[in-house]
Design a protein around this nucleic acid. Structure first.
Lengths: 70, 70
DNA sequence: TTCTTATGTAAAATATACTTGACATCCATT
DNA sequence: AATGGATGTCAAGTATATTTTACATAAGAA
């Protein structure tokens, strides 16, 4: 299942996968896999993504709150 | 630097490293490294630890809130 | 004392995260 | 039509997370 939350947070910042990857110091492909794959990234990678996108771990990587009521 | 938050959360549940590891399906050493090492665990491992200990990613793995005021 | 449980640590093997390089498609410009 | 930016994907290589096995110490119970 896709991680739409990362993708959305990135697009809200008007940032390309390539740009996000460059800032973090990983490859474009790695970002792609985080967003679109059944993938198991490293905690440090998650944290760096969060910080670059101004989010927290719970925001982007904690269990899906997609169907959550406000 | 140590991750005291995981260790504390585990001890609050009166659970040994071995028991936590067994429930999660990893090795005792892995739990030990998470708690006491400069270590970069996998997101899935972090999530499983959180769920077993009744905590969230932010609780146990987000930046240190140790000096946080309540 | 002896036995057991909990923990720390270390070296070698295995599994897998991440890189590198490449090719393809789609879409917006020129 | 042609160029460039953004994304998807794939195969092979490298780095590192996790396992396995093992040994050691400390503390509590029998």
């Amino acid at each position: 299942m896709k991680n739409l939350k990362v993708k959305l947070a990135r697009m809200e910042k008007d940032m390309s996968q390539t740009e996000l990857a460059r800032r973090i110091g990983v490859t474009r492909q790695t970002i792609g896999m985080v967003e679109s794959g059944d993938y198991n990234p490293t905690l440090n990678l998650c944290i760096q993504i969060c910080k670059e996108l101004g989010k927290t771990l719970n925001d982007l990587f904690w269990e899906d709150n997609d169907n959550e009521m406000v």
